[in-house]
Design a protein around this nucleic acid. Sequence first.
DNA 1: TTTTTTTACGCAATCGTTCCCGGTAACGAT
DNA 2: ATCGTTACCGGGAACGATTGCGTAAAAAAA
Lengths: 351, 351
Amino acid sequence: MKFEAVTIKDIAKALGLSTSTVSRALRDSYEISPETKKLVQEYAEKINYHPNPIALSLKERRSRSIGVIVCEIANSFFSQIINGVESIAYTNGYNVIIAQSRESADREMMNLQYLTSRSIDGLIVSVSTETKDFSYFKELSEKGLPIVFFDRIVDEINTHKVIVDSHAGAYDATMHLIMNGYRKIAAVSNPELLSITRERLAGYKAALSESGIPVDDTIIKFCQHGGMIAAEVEEVMKDLLKRKQRPDAIIATADKLTTGCLRILKAKGISVPDEMGLIGFSNTDLTELLDPPLSVVRQPAFEMGELATNLLLQLIESKRPITEFETKVLASELLIRGSTSKKPIKQAEFS
Amino acid sequence: MKFEAVTIKDIAKALGLSTSTVSRALRDSYEISPETKKLVQEYAEKINYHPNPIALSLKERRSRSIGVIVCEIANSFFSQIINGVESIAYTNGYNVIIAQSRESADREMMNLQYLTSRSIDGLIVSVSTETKDFSYFKELSEKGLPIVFFDRIVDEINTHKVIVDSHAGAYDATMHLIMNGYRKIAAVSNPELLSITRERLAGYKAALSESGIPVDDTIIKFCQHGGMIAAEVEEVMKDLLKRKQRPDAIIATADKLTTGCLRILKAKGISVPDEMGLIGFSNTDLTELLDPPLSVVRQPAFEMGELATNLLLQLIESKRPITEFETKVLASELLIRGSTSKKPIKQAEFS
DNA sequence: TTTTTTTACGCAATCGTTCCCGGTAACGAT
DNA sequence: ATCGTTACCGGGAACGATTGCGTAAAAAAA
């Protein structure tokens, strides 16, 4: 079942040389005569020799592989991120090892231990909705493991971070709703302790306040699993819809929440955008084909993945310890479509 | 920048023992006295010792990691597959290393060489649309590298495979279109050399023939990049739509093709399902929210990923070479929604 | 010719771990 | 007193590659 690889020893034996000579010849060392080099290199080529990366890893104490921990892969935002990560890693000769937390802090911790014990050179992470304790991340980071956070970042850990301007994204989206005549705007969101949740809700509240609309905390809802479980979205939606003063619009702060809200609204027969406006953060490229076409805040996920990986590689390959870290803030994109524009003509007709 | 790990030597030195004793104590060997064991194990626990996986890999000649090559990650079908792969790999202590071919045979080959040179224990692959030459796969497989193919399989290589019943899926979908009154049914498909393309088109043709509808090869279209590039779908759609005898329905045989077709139809203002019926293979969970809700053939992607991984691990961990291979065929699911039902009332009105 | 320098290669250690051999006690049996 | 067991433990060779150091022979300088 083993699939035997050629080693440097095989070459040495076959050519009557020592392994050191072979090694040096292959690395084109000046200490080896041109003839010997040619001999060795041609033979190596012939028998299809490739240095054993594991032996190299052992010697050089690096594995040329990076770990990625996300809540789930089957999510357009994160799969686009991974796409970006893979593209940069690939061109730099690194492997990408993926792990899913499934929004569980336990699983995240397990993945973390697992990946670090497998000698990865660095880590790219968006923390789970459940994680409260970041001390292990911090410990690893302080011990010298290069980590780059993206999307859901950890403020208390000093390292590179890549995010979008969540505040602006949510602010603009909320403003857009207000401009379009919506007044009672609910928020469906990730758990509160997530960095992006805080930012996005802050943007949402800022837009309301600036427009003279009171912030109503009872219509700000949280989904513990970020919409990964359909039932939790249904739960909060039910709660919003049964209110006497029913909201006339919803802003959702994550991919699965946005589509989850739409799903429930359609199931309940509530017309979007007329009875209820809907806008949300989303990265699926099907939003324009939905019924109604969904207005979304789109994040440059692929670029985020690329950027995070470049920063990580910079950390990994730096000779001396880096103490100056940066937080890259990218702009999100507001895509206006049908789900947020009430038809004024119809209203006129009705009145 | 390095992040120092404790080794067995550190323990040996601290406790005044030899490395072999420490190693054995940690592995709970009978040759070590209970006291020594306790001493070593407690000390190891205390200083948080973890065996170096790279050293183990070198010694045991296995890396406990598996490679996955798909055309792209940011595709619901494949990300669901990877989800399944990861879940099984994780519970069995394996890493998942991912690579994307982006439908390029060259890139696929590079990934292949790269992954195998990185000493993976096994490989899970869905080949690219472009690949014509499978000899390298074959060579690797025959040399003893465990490989499991899924979705786009390679007939000429004898190993485990996981697919859905593509013939039945396409047959049922086509039959469904015929039942609903569509007569001139076009097919938008992946390149012809792909196993799934052949199967699906065969199913499509069988349904037509059985229903007494002549097969028209001029309305069977192929997209070289499987819809990964938007322009190619537009191209074939243009061709289909400008025909004198315009098709009244389309069956698309892959995820991106299905949504791609819908996108074009909407852009051209062609009403689905009335002017044009549409059904296709797809795994996005948004299809029911689309306008119109899309009838689809859905594959059990997560289960396929799980199954493929279980088969692969079985191959990897088998003591003796396996010569009997199986091809697991799973059933696809036909989800009927709005995109395939003309409204008969309207037709009555018009006539 | 002798001395110095250069050239070209081999030896052995190293990375962290396992495991095949030995080796040394202690102890009971002969 | 001698032998055979058993229980415990250490030495050292692997795994595949790199690399500092040593050194023979060849070439250059004296």
